[in-house]
C-alpha cells in the first residue's frame, strides 16, 4: 500500500492504494469516473487516454506509484457544469461519434494536442490520434471536429 496525492480534474485528491494498481482502475473504481474506457488493456487502442501532466497517455499503462504529485485530466474534467467544451461540441456537430466507445479517448488525445499547439496542421492532428482506434466511424469526421476546434482557437486549459 502507498499513500499518494495528485490533482484530478483540478482538485487535489488523496488515496491509499496498492502500488501496482493501474490508473484506469483507480479512475473508474475509486472515483467512479467511467468516462475513461478500456479496450485492450495493453496500450494499443487508446480508449483509456487521459491527460497526465499535459500529455496524452494511456491510463491502462500508468501505475499508482507514478501518480504522485501528478496532474490528471479525464473526459469528465474537460467540460464544466455539464456544458460541453468546443471540441466536444464539434464532435457532436461534425458527427465524429458513432458507438462512442473510442470517443473520450479521441477527445483527450486531441485536447492534449491543442493544449500545446492551438494551430496544428492536419498531419499533427492525425499523429495525435494515430494511437486511438475507432472500429465504427472511420476517422474523417474526427479530424473535421479537431480541425474546426483548432480554427476557433477557444480551448482553454481547464486543468490550470
Amino acid at each position: 500500500m502507498i499513500q499518494i496525492s495528485f490533482i484530478l480534474n483540478g482538485k487535489k485528491v488523496k488515496l491509499e492504494t496498492d502500488e501496482n494498481r493501474r490508473l484506469i482502475d483507480i479512475l473508474r473504481e475509486d472515483f467512479s469516473l467511467t468516462g475513461t474506457k478500456e479496450g485492450c488493456s495493453i496500450g494499443e487502442c487508446g480508449a483509456c487516454t487521459i491527460i497526465m501532466n499535459k500529455l496524452a497517455v494511456n491510463s491502462c499503462l500508468v501505475l499508482a506509484g507514478q501518480l504522485i504529485d501528478s496532474e490528471i485530466l479525464t473526459i469528465e474534467g474537460v467540460s464544466e457544469n455539464g456544458k460541453l467544451n468546443v471540441l466536444q461540441e464539434n464532435f457532436l456537430k461534425y458527427g465524429a461519434v458513432q458507438c462512442g466507445y473510442c470517443t473520450p479517448g479521441m477527445i483527450m488525445s486531441i485536447y492534449a494536442l491543442l493544449l500545446k499547439n492551438n494551430n496544428p496542421a492536419d498531419e499533427e492532428i492525425k499523429e495525435a490520434i494515430a494511437g486511438n482506434l475507432c472500429r465504427c466511424t472511420g476517422y474523417k469526421q474526427i479530424i473535421d471536429a479537431a480541425r474546426a476546434t483548432a480554427d476557433t482557437d477557444m480551448i482553454t486549459d481547464l486543468s490550470q
Binding site: 460541453l84 458527427g95 473520450p104
Partner: peptide, 10 residues
C-alpha cells in the same frame, strides 16, 4: 445524434 451528448461528455 440524440445520444451524442452522453458520448462526448463521458
Amino acid at each position: 445524434r440524440k445520444d451524442a451528448y452522453d458520448k462526448v461528455s463521458g
